[in-house]
Design a protein around this nucleic acid. Structure first.
Lengths: 147, 147
DNA sequence: TCGAAAATGTTGAATGTTCAAGAATTGGGA
DNA sequence: TCCCAATTCTTGAACATTCAACATTTTCGA
């Protein structure tokens, strides 16, 4: 029997702490799966959003993938270098830059999706179908209530 | 009526994403409260763990506050500069360094606790007592199942 | 007892993120 | 129309985090 990695501390009573802890753990697991392809979680998110084939502005993309604008700009630079995505100027509003996914990006995204799916399956197995569904529901409500 | 900041995206189906989103939002709120005292969330966590007056090794502390060792070392350096905590060598195992909270740290921690409590109260109000309790329970189970 | 391996914490270089400012474009009121 | 404020994105400097290597101390088997 392994000892609990986080014995009772005064922190465990706080929702903020439990969220941080759960997020850290799940994110670690996902990261470790995606590392097969050498891709950070954020890049997978970007690819997934762009997978609809539409152009997405940097601002919308930043909101969607939970990154600040400058961070997204620099991460996008790397992905452009890797030929996963490309930029086009928006014809209707030339302040905007529209991001598109490339064929290479699509292929990578497909592989990443299946790695991520296997993680979700693993969670479902360990944690239970019902609890997972309930947790998702509660998180969605919290996000709505908090923002 | 404000528009939803995160319209339906292919990401919202993933537990990992919902956790990241909720964590980000709640953490932002907490951060904004604690900024009254100019203290990052991690420092509050450190102070809170040390509040029992016992000495805690860097390793234990790092696990408890969800920081990597080098990050904790450097954050601790800052807190020592601010006279919030201090280091002592462990007499029984001289590889270890024990961290202690100072009187100044205790006073600050008290103020931070009440700022954090007011955030929790705010969440309870918006989100509901029952849902909050249920969410905490599910998160604890997830953490146990995942680690 | 001795020595190799493990545990603990720190450091410096590489890397990544954030803040503040800037460039370009658009929108809207005087 | 014209100009000023707001929007969108990028950039460079300051700052923080991470990785790998190191120094110290302990543990434990030969």
């Amino acid at each position: 029997m392994a000892k609990s990695p986080h014995p009772n501390s005064p922190l465990t009573e706080h929702l903020a702490y439990l969220l941080a802890q759960a997020n850290r753990e799940i994110n670690r697991q996902l990261e470790s799966r995606l590392s097969t392809e050498g891709v950070p979680v954020e890049q997978w998110r970007i690819l997934k959003v762009l997978s609809d084939g539409e152009g997405h502005s940097m601002g919308d993309l930043a909101d969607a993938v939970l990154l600040n604008h400058p961070t997204l700009t620099k991460m996008t630079d790397r992905m452009v270098s890797d030929s996963l995505v490309y930029r086009r100027q928006d014809a209707h509003d030339r302040r905007k830059v529209l991001m598109f996914i490339s064929d290479r990006g699509k292929a990578l995204c497909k592989r990443l999706n299946s790695l991520a799916a296997s993680q979700e399956a693993h969670i479902l197995e360990n944690y239970g179908d019902k609890a997972t569904g309930e947790l998702k529901r509660l998180l969605e409500n919290l996000i709505d209530a908090a923002s």
